[in-house]
Design a protein around this nucleic acid. Structure first.
Length: 594
RNA sequence: GCCGGCGUAGCUCAGAGGUAGAGCAGCCGAUUCGUAAUCGGCAGGUCGUCGGUUCGACUCCGACCGCCGGCUCCA
C-alpha cells in the first residue's frame, strides 16, 4: 500500500497521477478546488492534492477547519472556474527557480517538496491566476470538469505523519458524466442504508455499549449467524484433517517476551496484574499454539500438524480507530497454524487455497490473490525462502489462479498470500491471509521434529485465517446482503402468519412441523392484521412467510410469500419443508421457491 | 492518540437559562382481519458523566467518557 509520501513524491515516474482519463480529470479537479480555496480564503497554504479512488482531495494549511457551508461556497466557486474554461498550461523551470517562486509566496510545503526532489527541472501547471507545482497530466482546460461534488472535510497530517502539522483536507468526487456521478452518490447512500451498525441494531444481531468500547454484545439473532458460520467452518476443517485446540486467553507476560510481542506489540496489549505477576489478554494465538506442538516430541510422520483455533483476541486499538464490527478491540479469529516440513509446503498451501475457494464461493465471493515476497530486511535461510516462495507461487499456478506479485512486501519472517474480495457495492475487503513463517515460531520457540534419519529438524509454520475475524466477517456479510442473509444463515428462516386468531391453532401445528424439521421458525400470533405482520416480517428480512388461514387449514397447505416478493400461492407444507431443508443443507444462495 | 462534528425515552428526532415533547416500538383494552402499518388508552427520560458560573443549568463554561467522518493503524 502506497503511503502518502510515495504516492505524492515518487522518485521516479513522470506523472503525478495515472495518465488515464478519470484520474487525470480528478487530479485537475483537485487543482480547481485549490484555486477556489485560495481565492475564497486568502492566506491558506497548499500542501498536496492527488486523485484517489473515486475522487480527489487537497490538503490545506489553515487554522480554522472548513465547515459544510465553506464547502458549498468552494463548490460554487469551482463551478465558476469550470465555466470560465481556463486552459491548463504547463511550464518548466529549474528547480532552484521554482523554490524561489514558492518561497516568495510563502508556500512552505511546496518548498519542502521541491527540496526533497532530485530533478534539476520541475514543472508547474497554471490555470487562470492559479499556479501549482505538478507533473501532470491534466485535462486541457477547467471546462472539462462537469460532474463533481465536494463530500467532506477532515484533518490529515502533513505527509501522513502524526508528529507533523495537522492540515485541513477536503474530499471530493468527480466523474466523466452526470450519470456516473449520480450513480456514485447513490452507491454512497446505499452504503449508508446497508451500514451494519444500523442493520445490526434493527435486525437485533449485535449491539455496542460504552461499558466496553470496541467489543460487541452478540444478541441471540446475531449469535445464530455466528454459530452457523462456526458450524460451516468446523465442517470444512474437520473434513480436512485440522485438529481444533483452545488455548488460554490470559497469559503471563513471559510468553510475550519469548515471542517478541512484548517488545514490538506491547502498546496494543491489555495488561492484567494478579499476585504480583503481569498477564496479558492474548492479542494473537500463534505463540500458544507452539505449546501444543511442543506438548510431546514430534516425528516427521506426525507432520503436517494442523491446529485450528477459534481464539478470542483482545487488541488495544487506539480509540479513534474503532468502527462498528469492522474495527473492534475484542474479536474471534478463525485461526489455524500448520506445522510441516518444507517439502510439504506446497500441498498445505494448496489445501488452504481450496478452503478459501470453498468457503468464499458459498457466499458468492470471488477471491483475488496476491503474493508478497522476500523483503530486504528478511531473516532466515535464503534457500528456505526460495523454497517457500516457489511453493506459494506453484500452489496458485497449478490451480490456474491469477495473482499479483508484491515484490519485497512479505514479512521479515516469511512470504505470504493475501486474499481480497469485493462486495456487491464493489468495495474491496482483505480477508484471508496465508502467512508462511520460517523464523518466528520455529526459531523463537525452538520447534523440532525427529526426521527419518533420526536427527532433529526444524519445521516451518503457516499462519492462516479464512474469515479473518467473525466480527468483521459478519459486518461485511450484513452489508453485502443488506441484512437479507441466505436462508442457511438467516436468524429466522420462516415466520408463520395466521390470518386471524381463529387460525392460530393451525399455525401452531405448522410451526411444530417446521421446528421438528430443524428450521428456525416463529409464529406471529398477535392480534394484528395480516398486512401488519407481513410488513414486520419483511422488514426483519425473514426469507419465507407462510400465511395460514381457512383455506390452508382445510387443505393442509401454506400460502408462501418470499422476502421482498409477492404472494406465491398455496403449497403443500411437506413440499415446502423438503425444498427449504434442502436449500439450507446445501447452504444455497438461491431459493428453490419463487 | 490527533483534527472536526455529535450525545434529549428502546429507535428516529423536536425543544430550550425557570426545570422536557412527538412519531414508531412497549404495555393494557377494543377489533378477528387474506399479502408492507386498525383504533383508543397507559407507561416511559436524574437531557452521556463529573465539576464550575448562576437565585436557578438539560440549556452557558471546563474536563472526561462514548459515538460519527477523516488521519495514523489494522483481523
Amino acid at each position: 500500500m502506497a503511503n502518502e509520501t510515495s504516492r505524492e513524491l515518487p522518485v521516479e515516474g513522470e506523472f503525478d497521477c495515472p495518465p488515464e482519463p478519470l484520474p487525470t480529470l480528478r487530479h485537475s479537479a483537485s487543482h480547481i478546488m485549490a484555486q477556489a480555496v485560495t481565492e475564497l480564503f486568502p492566506g491558506v497554504r497548499l500542501a498536496i492534492g492527488p486523485a484517489i479512488e473515486d475522487g480527489f482531495y487537497y490538503d490545506f494549511a489553515r487554522d480554522e477547519p472548513f465547515t459544510p457551508e465553506d464547502l458549498e461556497r468552494i463548490e460554487a466557486r469551482m463551478r465558476e472556474i469550470a465555466k470560465a474554461d481556463y486552459p491548463f498550461v504547463r511550464e518548466e523551470l529549474p528547480r532552484a527557480e521554482a523554490i524561489r517562486f514558492f518561497q516568495e509566496r510563502g508556500e512552505v510545503f511546496k518548498v519542502e517538496i521541491l527540496n526533497g526532489l532530485a530533478a534539476d527541472r520541475v514543472s508547474l501547471y497554471r490555470q487562470g491566476d492559479f499556479v501549482d507545482l505538478c507533473r501532470g497530466p491534466h485535462v486541457p482546460s477547467t471546462g472539462h470538469l462537469k460532474a463533481f461534488k465536494l463530500l467532506s472535510a477532515s484533518g490529515a497530517y502533513w505527509r501522513g505523519d502524526e508528529r507533523r502539522p495537522m492540515l485541513q483536507r477536503i474530499y471530493g468526487t468527480a466523474w466523466r458524466t452526470r450519470e456516473e456521478l449520480e450513480q456514485h452518490l447513490w452507491r454512497l447512500e446505499e452504503a449508508k442504508r446497508r451500514d451494519h451498525r444500523k442493520l445490526g441494531r434493527e435486525l437485533q444481531l449485535f449491539t455496542f455499549h460504552d461499558v466496553s468500547p470496541g467489543a460487541p454484545f452478540w444478541l441471540p439473532k446475531g449469535m445464530i449467524v455466528f454459530r452457523e458460520l462456526e458450524r460451516f467452518w468446523r465442517e470444512v476443517h474437520d473434513a480436512r484433517g485440522y485438529l481444533e485446540i483452545s488455548t488460554p486467553i490470559l497469559v503471563n507476560k513471559r510468553l510475550w517476551e519469548e515471542s517478541g510481542h512484548w517488545e514490538h506489540y506491547r502498546e496494543n496489549m491489555f495488561l492484567v496484574e494478579a499476585e504480583e505477576q503481569v498477564f496479558s489478554l492474548k492479542p494473537m494465538n500463534c505463540p500458544e499454539s507452539t505449546y501444543v506442538y511442543r506438548h510431546h516430541l514430534r516425528s516427521y510422520r506426525d507432520l503436517p500438524l494442523r491446529f485450528a483455533e477459534l481464539g478470542r483476541l483482545h487488541r488495544n486499538e487506539r480509540s479513534g480507530t474503532l468502527a462498528g464490527m469492522f474495527r473492534v478491540r475484542q474479536f474471534t479469529q478463525d485461526d489455524a497454524h500448520i506445522y510441516c516440513r518444507p517439502d510439504q509446503l506446497e500441498a498445505e498451501i494448496t489445501g488452504v487455497i481450496e478452503i478459501v475457494q470453498l468457503i468464499y464461493g458459498t457466499f458468492g465471493f470471488e477471491p483475488r490473490f496476491s503474493l508478497s515476497t522476500r523483503p530486504a530486511k528478511a531473516m532466515g535461510d535464503p534457500a528456505l525462502w526460495e523454497q517457500a516462495e516457489t511453493a506459494l507461487a506453484e500452489a496458485l499456478r497449478k490451480r490456474d489462479l491469477p495473482y499479483e506479485v508484491r515484490a519485497g512486501e512479505g514479512a521479515f519472517y516469511g512470504p505470504k498470500i493475501d486474499v481480497v474480495i469485493s462486495d456487491v457495492l464493489g468495495r474491496a475487503w482483505q480477508l484471508a491471509t496465508i502467512q508462511l513463517d520460517l523464523v518466528m515460531l520455529p526459531e523463537r520457540f525452538a520447534l523440532e521434529y525427529i526426521d527419518a534419519d533420526g536427527k532433529a529438524k526444524r519445521p516451518v509454520a503457516i499462519h492462516r485465517a479464512i474469515y479473518g475475524s467473525f466480527e468483521r466477517f459478519v459486518g461485511i456479510l450484513t452489508e453485502h446482503f443488506a441484512g437479507a442473509f441466505p436462508t442457511w444463515l438467516a436468524p429466522v428462516q420462516v415466520r408463520v402468519l395466521p390470518v386471524s386468531e381463529r387460525h392460530v391453532a393451525y399455525g401452531r401445528s405448522v410451526l411444530d412441523r417446521l421446528r421438528s424439521a430443524g428450521l428456525r421458525a416463529e409464529l406471529d400470533e398477535r392480534s394484528e392484521k395480516l398486512g401488519y405482520k407481513i410488513r414486520e416480517a419483511q422488514l426483519q428480512k425473514v426469507p419465507y412467510m407462510l400465511v395460514v388461514g381457512e383455506r390452508e387449514a382445510q387443505a393442509g397447505t401454506v400460502s408462501l410469500r418470499r422476502r421482498g416478493g409477492d404472494d406465491l400461492g398455496q403449497i403443500p407444507l411437506d413440499r415446502f419443508i423438503a425444498e427449504v431443508t434442502a436449500e439450507v443443507s446445501a447452504r444455497s444462495m438461491k431459493s428453490p421457491l419463487g
